[in-house]
């Protein structure tokens, strides 16, 4: 056949991409699995000629770490809290954006800005906003003088300032800041996708619904949301996947300590745990943790897909 004769050409063209893929994607995946199942594997010791026994000790160790369980808790908490909030907000905002004519372009751009802004930079701005003090080493008087804008607003309305992120702050306050930040950061992408979906819905359905006497909220829940369900499923699934990989947002606000100065690591996440393990040359444990994270994301995504299959409509 002519085609099979030409096949080698196709492979030739594909070769550069395949080679890169093999080196930087396929091999690391294999290597991760290999390292995860070698007891106490360490790259440094391996270079020194040490050999490692095969086993599941890395997984056991990782799961026994209190730190790891904490990371898992924080990650799951952030996921479960932020995905529904950001999805709902994105839905309402995109529906509102879609229904106004003047300034739609401008507002669309404004809502999209966070997407093109570096998330570490955004994190630092948030950190400044939620600061209770300008300097960690200040006296009591300085604390009040340099409060962040959020506390300024709270005090303006007669509330008492909250220690959001500084030494002595509570886990709940920390998580609240993180949720606000992650939701805000996640909105642009979701709005973009949902707005695109909304604009592709045939306007006649809305005319029909109006003639049928639907109220606005009924139209939203009975017409818009079902017609938008494929896009909603997409942003929810990608939201969960992104949520389980949460790391930079914490660094953005709390820095590499992953927590307030007096309790570093308090807000550490799964990915943070993996980085820490790598930095102590425990590639075996890092790989095991990575595989556990992969397993969790896989299961959550499968559940998501199963649920969305039931609820998306065409």
């Amino acid at each position: 056949m002519v085609e099979s004769k030409k096949q080698w050409k196709a492979w030739l063209y594909l070769a550069p991409a395949l080679v890169l893929l093999a080196i930087f994607t396929v091999w690391p995946i294999f290597n991760t699995v290999r390292m995860a199942f070698l007891e106490n594997y360490s790259g440094l010791k391996a270079a020194g000629g040490e050999t490692f026994a095969f086993g599941i000790g890395n997984f056991k160790k990782v799961l026994e770490y209190k730190k790891f369980v904490n990371c898992l808790k924080t990650t799951a908490l952030l996921c479960v809290a932020t995905v529904p909030i950001s999805t709902l907000l994105a839905l309402l905002i995109s529906v509102a954006l879609n229904s106004i004519k003047p300034l739609q372009r401008l507002l669309q751009t404004i809502f999209f800005l966070p997407y093109v802004t570096n998330s570490i930079a955004i994190g630092m701005v948030f950190a400044a906003m939620f600061n209770i003090v300008g300097s960690f080493h200040g006296t009591q008087n300085e604390i009040i003088a340099t409060a962040g804008i959020v506390n300024n607003v709270i005090e303006f309305f007669g509330g008492t300032a909250v220690n959001w992120i500084n030494s002595g702050s509570s886990y709940a306050a920390n998580i609240t800041v993180m949720i606000i930040y992650i939701v805000w950061n996640a909105l642009p992408f979701k709005i973009l996708i949902l707005l695109g979906g909304l604009q592709s819905i045939n306007k006649q359905y809305y005319d029909a619904a109006k003639v049928d006497g639907s109220t606005r909220s009924r139209i939203l829940w009975r017409i818009t949301v079902p017609l938008l369900s494929p896009m909603l499923a997409y942003v929810i699934i990608t939201g969960f996947i992104g949520g389980f990989k949460e790391y930079t947002s914490i660094v953005g606000i709390f820095g590499a300590t992953m927590g307030p100065p007096d309790d570093g690591g308090r807000l550490n996440t799964m990915v943070g745990f993996i980085y820490d393990a790598l930095s102590t040359n425990s590639q075996g444990r890092a790989s095991a943790a990575a595989l556990i994270l992969f397993g969790i994301i896989l299961v959550v995504t499968l559940i998501n897909l199963a649920v969305s299959k039931k609820n998306t409509h065409y």
Binding site: N202, A208, H313
Partner: peptide, 20 residues
């Protein structure tokens, strides 16, 4: 508004809700 007029409208391409 349309809902208070008591009209029924059949659209050119029907506009049946596809998810129902």
């Amino acid at each position: 508004p349309p809902e208070h007029r008591g009209v029924g409208l059949v659209f050119q391409n029907y506009a049946l809700y596809p998810h129902m």
